[in-house]
């Protein structure tokens, strides 16, 4: 059995993501004095991670990290696990970690729990809790292997505050062999604008079938979202009708989101839509049908027409934030 907790700290090229600070704060609380370390891929410095509790920061850098490949990512994880010998590894439930962690688990022959939303210490072990069946049920998850792997849904824990420590930086040598990296990224298309990815977004404004057209989605939903720096989302009905791209779909066959604020505009609240957003902390719904199922989960509801209410709300938000 290893000792301490290793956190995967993701960054966007310049800044660490909010998830890095969320996981470090949680790791510090769970570790109870045992060492907390971090792994950083694709850059060679620790930034301010030491101030947030990472006593050691392992780095793996080089051209091979310019784009995500499971080959390089898993090799780096494997090297960090062998250097830190942790009892627990925590990573954000990002596209990258969710792709790499199953491979790491199979390579090491250990257990991995996907996308937990809670973590606690019980009888000396870290126990997770996770939604299943699209959030219609929850269970505890116990991982009994020498190292226990978890990915954690973004926004599950508050980010910590800097307490002024520093970290010891250790550059990992990966010794990549031909055949270790089996995939090549030949092209990469960045999203237009600087909208936060839905799975990490703290605020989301979603539109449903009621927007009636792509223009409706753009003028009603995107404008309202922009007024509070939210990421736009959509129901499947809106996506299937071509009002918004699939990358913006929330739900069972779209993205699972966990924002502080979710505003649903003209969305009925079908069970498959709820599967993607039911853990949102505050849910606002605007729908002209008072019987719409979405109101059962709603914190603040407005029974009304989105074409009238949303523009007024955009104005009010803009005024409030001015």
């Amino acid at each position: 059995m290893g000792n301490g907790i290793l956190v995967v700290a993701e960054h966007d090229g310049s800044n660490f993501k909010k998830t890095a600070y969320e996981l470090l704060a949680k790791a510090k609380a769970l570790a109870g004095g045992a060492p907390v370390s971090a792994l950083v891929m694709g850059r060679s410095d620790a930034g301010d991670l030491g101030e947030y509790g990472a006593a050691t920061v392992y780095t793996a850098d080089g051209d091979v990290f310019a784009h995500y490949t499971p080959g390089a990512y898993v090799k780096a994880l494997q090297a960090a696990v062998s250097a830190a010998d942790p009892a627990v590894v925590l990573a954000p439930a990002s596209a990258e970690a969710k792709d790499a962690f199953p491979r790491l688990a199979a390579r090491l022959g250990v257990g991995y729990a996907t996308e937990v939303t809670e973590l606690r210490v019980d009888g000396g072990a870290v126990v997770g809790r996770r939604p299943q069946y699209g959030g219609k049920a929850f269970s505890d998850v116990h991982v009994s292997s020498s190292v226990a792997l978890f990915t954690v849904r973004p926004n599950s824990f508050p980010a910590g505050v800097a307490t002024g420590g520093s970290s010891n930086v250790v550059a990992l040598s990966l010794d990549l062999q031909p055949g270790d990296v089996k995939t090549t990224v030949v092209d990469s298309e960045e999203p237009s604008g600087d909208v936060v990815d839905l799975t990490e977004a703290d605020r989301i404004v979603s539109g449903g079938r009621a927007v009636k057209s792509k223009e409706g989605f753009d003028t009603i939903i995107r404008t309202l979202a922009a007024s509070i720096g939210a990421s736009p989302g959509a129901s499947r009905a809106a996506v299937d009708a071509g009002y918004a791209p699939h990358s913006e779909q929330v739900g069972q066959t779209g993205k699972v989101v966990n924002p502080t604020l979710y505003i649903a505009c003209g969305i009925s609240g079908a069970i498959q839509h709820l599967a993607g957003m039911r853990t949102s902390k505050v849910i606002v719904s605007i729908n002209k049908d008072p019987e719409a199922p979405i109101f059962a989960l709603t914190t603040y509801g407005i029974v009304g027409d989105i074409f009238e209410v949303c523009p007024l709300l955009t104005e009010a938000f803009t005024a409030a934030l001015a």
Binding site: V110, G111, Y112, A113, R129, P131, G135, K136, A137, F138, S139, D140, V141, H142, V143, S144, S145, A148, R278, I283, V284, P290, F295, L297, T298, T299, Y300, G301, I302, V303, G304, E308, V309, L312, L313, A316
Partner: peptide
């Protein structure tokens, strides 16, 4: 190595509130 237990339905959400008034009032209240 992975065992699940303590199954439950999702935690209940605190009761919500339907806002009253005309559109402008409801938006201000929101």
């Amino acid at each position: 190595h992975v065992v699940e237990d303590a199954w439950s339905l999702p935690p209940a959400r605190p009761a919500g509130r339907i806002l009253e008034g005309d559109n402008a009032q409801r938006v201000q209240e929101l």
